[in-house]
Design a binder for these strands. Sequence first.
DNA 1: AAAAATTACTAAAACGTTGTAGTAAATAAA
DNA 2: TTTATTTACTACAACGTTTTAGTAATTTTT
Lengths: 339, 339
Amino acid sequence: MNLKQLAKELNLSISAVSKALRDSHEISPATKKAVLAKAKELNYQVNPFASGLRKQKSKTIAVIIPEVVNDFFGPVINGIESIAQEKGYHVLIYLTHEVEQKEVAIINLLQNGRVDGVMISISAQTSDTTHLEALKEKGIPLVFFDRIVERINAPKVITDDYNSGAVATNHLIENGCQRIAFVSLPNKLTITQKRMNGYLDALKNIHIKKDNSLILFCNGDEHKDKDLIRNLLKRKDRPDGIFASVEKLAIITYEVCEELNLNIPADVKVICFSNLKTAGLLNPSLTTITQPAFEIGREAASILFKLIEKKGHHFLLEKTTINSKLIKRISTEKTSGEK
Amino acid sequence: MNLKQLAKELNLSISAVSKALRDSHEISPATKKAVLAKAKELNYQVNPFASGLRKQKSKTIAVIIPEVVNDFFGPVINGIESIAQEKGYHVLIYLTHEVEQKEVAIINLLQNGRVDGVMISISAQTSDTTHLEALKEKGIPLVFFDRIVERINAPKVITDDYNSGAVATNHLIENGCQRIAFVSLPNKLTITQKRMNGYLDALKNIHIKKDNSLILFCNGDEHKDKDLIRNLLKRKDRPDGIFASVEKLAIITYEVCEELNLNIPADVKVICFSNLKTAGLLNPSLTTITQPAFEIGREAASILFKLIEKKGHHFLLEKTTINSKLIKRISTEKTSGEK
DNA sequence: AAAAATTACTAAAACGTTGTAGTAAATAAA
DNA sequence: TTTATTTACTACAACGTTTTAGTAATTTTT
């Protein structure tokens, strides 16, 4: 069913029907009513390819993330989808699996008008960002969330990473930790850097200086990351507190502690950036810095749609910060023997 | 950059360039080489709308699921995406949030050629399925996974739900449970029915007959579901075993048990269909029937692509069953006082 | 009552591909 | 040597919309 057939049924020209469907003032109310009725009757739907080709608009956005199986990115997608559904947009999902090469390939696929805008949280391994700059150069609206690229001039939605890093570290200090390890993704990522800076400054405040042997940069490969963390916790001078910068690393830490028979929180206290639904049900329950993931998704999507709709306006190019919150649970509690 | 401009740069006709890019035998090797080089130089990309319009192909599939924040659907998407990326397809995501009305609206959006195929796990509240039949009628390839519609003649990828239901129930029986509750989604869903039949037959085997007060049909609304489960566990004749048919309900069960100060597994044993990464780290660790979610995604996507590529062939219209497995953990263990 | 403006349409040209039909020139077959 | 075939292209008509530029007919203004 297309416009041509519909027009024939109605004894009207194709353009009249097209205009009637889009409620043009050039068409009389009576005709409009007739067209709408017939269109409904015959279940006419606009062909998105013809329409997209003509209007140079896709009504589609792309979301590029490292992974879906994740209690942060899941709710983010949820937030994005909720706004997209409101606005009548479609959502394409692409996963980089933390591989820079895949990210580049995906971005290159999107240069030809397939989407009206792109939202991305970059892969942990991305260091070169020319692919992202090229996309911006083409005039395709781009919004970063969480894992941003500082130097690219595009809207960014993030949490207060520096501050949260300090809060988490202080929480461990308050509960008696002296040797606090920072376990994290590669330090190319701005979230890693900021969270680490918060951690370092919190330590500096109590006159502890940076100890590189307590700072671990993982890379997203589960097995390798587990080895790194196992080595850290096997050391004689092992840390008494672990601050994990992402969810996955906290889970690995729990697994390793079980393996090595280390008690949380007596032997090691653990705090983590995490949106795990089950954080409160873990053994022991996990103290988290929780990001408002759904809201980040909604906010980032809203900004993207503003950008798409009012192209050329630059007043939106700022950073939006949504605060995380500390949820204290057992994994960082003082145990009876402690001062 | 389009074919016209590229052709002008090369002093060739548009069709020659088009054919060269698609490696047609009508074009000489020398010309092909020149075209490819120029296309790369100028970063030419085929316009997906023009191409889609002309070829009546979108190179896109739709995935319709109830939610993303879920350790089952997450890995499924992962599996789907991995196959789609291999095949050069794009993946549109739509969430129904368990609302039938949304599912209908989404399906209606897909009737106009936007996608070459659809994969769906239906909402828990879907009872009328004419929207899905209409989609099939239009000739758009459709594959069901996990939450299927039995009566629609389309490929289905599922797990051995009946058998797993029996295995889970037997496991509880073996560990001493006598009053086993079945906590589940609405019984419209075939997965609910089959899992329940497995449960009922396992009970019948030991001569326990169906007790409707021990069978709970939740509906996906977290608050209401929690109330239902709370009421179940507050009763004097509360069950000593709970078999939850989906992950979310097991988490709620854990929360309610904590709230009511019921010890798992001493007071109630809990088993659940679940893909929680953290099942082993929960307090207590949760015994699960785990579905091979990633493989389900890959398998369902593979079948969909076969269907897309060899349209009209009917040899693929079968059901594919991939087995789940029981992972025994503490939540169902016999406690010291038990026989 | 003539000129101007408005109403309610139609015709036709894009948008960027792809594939069919056509065509010179070169090569092979009769 | 003439005819048939192959090679390497070009021209052009789709695909289904949207939009600009018309145009009769009607209504309003002067």
